[in-house]
Amino acid sequence: MKKANFVVSGAFTLFALAIIFLSRSYPPSNHGVPGPRMFPLIIATLIIISSVVLFINTLRMKPEDDVPVDLTSRNVLNVYITIAGLIVYITLLPLLGFITTTSIMLLLFFKWFSRYAWWKCLLISVLFTVGIWALFSIVLNVPMRYGVLI
């Protein structure tokens, strides 16, 4: 947890510094009425103070409270692969179309996560995809027709 806290503290400090840097050109207060940069500066300052407090508290943390955070085990690697798969899916979605992309994505995930036969995975993925498409496209009138395929 110590390492994770240091990373959180550092990341949020950088985030707050970016807010301060970006808001420096925003119009200032006018006749005592705060301009658009005042609140971002207040919140960025609060974030920096909290990051410093977290950093100091973590330095004082007792060794027995330092629970390691799992970021590299096989189980967590599965999450990273899933995230990568979803990035590919979301990129291809508007290009290829909802039914094609979603059916393939679901088929691959079902096959990876479960022990069902290919045909069962394919059947569930197509049925679920078409069901969701029909619900949003036909019942809820959300435009779901995009991409070169369907």
Partner: peptide, 8 residues
Amino acid sequence: AKGVLTGG
């Protein structure tokens, strides 16, 4: 501190 950070 973490609550303030995520709230911020």
